[in-house]
Simulated scan of single mutants.
Amino acid sequence: MTQQLTERDVRDIATYARIGLTDEELAQMTVDLNSIIETLKPITEFDLESVDPTFHPIGGLSNVMREDVEVPGFTQEQALSNAPKQQDGSFLIPAILGGGDQ
């Protein structure tokens, strides 16, 4: 197996990605990444000279989104009608950061 990545390369990648690796993890990660690269090597050996690039596997798709049409929304009363608790025309929800008694 040809080594594509050195431990220095893997350390640089880990530093860039902010991943802390011990020396043992660095050595194992280097072996693992080189193994992955070796496994994918046959892909690079295909003759793709006459193959046109594909931009979407299904091809010929166009925008299938509907037009953005403005429709009337709820009134404030309708929106609050099923709220378990409300206060001053707003939803009243429990505090999640502390400091509140609701």
Rank of each mutant, 00 (worst) to 15 (best):
2 T>L: 13
3 Q>M: 11
3 Q>W: 13
4 Q>L: 11
5 L>T: 00
5 L>A: 07
5 L>P: 04
5 L>M: 12
6 T>S: 15
8 R>F: 04
8 R>Q: 05
9 D>L: 04
10 V>T: 03
10 V>I: 15
10 V>K: 01
10 V>M: 08
11 R>N: 07
12 D>T: 08
13 I>D: 12
13 I>T: 15
13 I>H: 13
13 I>A: 15
14 A>W: 13
15 T>S: 06
15 T>F: 08
16 Y>L: 08
16 Y>N: 08
17 A>K: 04
19 I>P: 01
19 I>F: 07
20 G>N: 11
20 G>D: 07
22 T>K: 01
23 D>N: 12
23 D>F: 02
23 D>M: 10
24 E>C: 01
24 E>Y: 01
24 E>W: 02
25 E>S: 03
25 E>L: 06
27 A>N: 07
28 Q>G: 03
29 M>A: 11
30 T>D: 02
30 T>R: 04
30 T>I: 00
30 T>E: 03
33 L>C: 06
34 N>L: 07
34 N>K: 13
36 I>N: 03
37 I>V: 08
37 I>W: 00
38 E>P: 00
38 E>S: 13
38 E>Y: 12
38 E>I: 07
39 T>Y: 10
39 T>S: 07
39 T>V: 09
39 T>L: 07
40 L>I: 11
40 L>M: 12
41 K>L: 07
41 K>Q: 09
42 P>K: 05
42 P>Q: 05
42 P>D: 05
42 P>L: 09
43 I>D: 06
43 I>L: 14
43 I>W: 12
44 T>L: 06
45 E>F: 12
45 E>C: 01
45 E>L: 11
46 F>Q: 02
47 D>H: 08
47 D>N: 14
48 L>M: 13
48 L>K: 09
49 E>H: 10
50 S>E: 11
50 S>Y: 12
50 S>P: 03
51 V>C: 09
51 V>R: 09
51 V>A: 14
53 P>T: 05
56 H>E: 05
59 G>E: 14
59 G>Y: 15
60 G>Q: 10
60 G>L: 06
61 L>T: 15
61 L>H: 11
62 S>M: 10
62 S>Q: 12
63 N>G: 04
64 V>L: 12
64 V>Y: 13
64 V>W: 10
65 M>P: 00
65 M>C: 04
66 R>T: 15
67 E>C: 02
68 D>G: 10
69 V>P: 03
69 V>K: 13
70 E>G: 03
70 E>I: 11
70 E>Q: 08
70 E>V: 11
70 E>F: 04
72 P>W: 01
72 P>K: 01
72 P>R: 00
72 P>D: 06
73 G>A: 12
74 F>P: 02
75 T>P: 05
75 T>Q: 08
76 Q>E: 10
76 Q>G: 14
79 A>S: 06
79 A>T: 00
79 A>C: 03
80 L>W: 15
80 L>Y: 15
81 S>Y: 14
81 S>N: 09
84 P>N: 09
85 K>E: 13
87 Q>G: 03
87 Q>L: 13
88 D>T: 06
89 G>E: 11
90 S>P: 00
90 S>T: 07
91 F>P: 01
93 I>R: 09
94 P>L: 06
95 A>S: 14
95 A>I: 04
97 L>Q: 07
97 L>K: 06
99 G>S: 04
100 G>M: 01
101 D>H: 13
101 D>Y: 11
101 D>E: 11
102 Q>E: 09
102 Q>R: 05
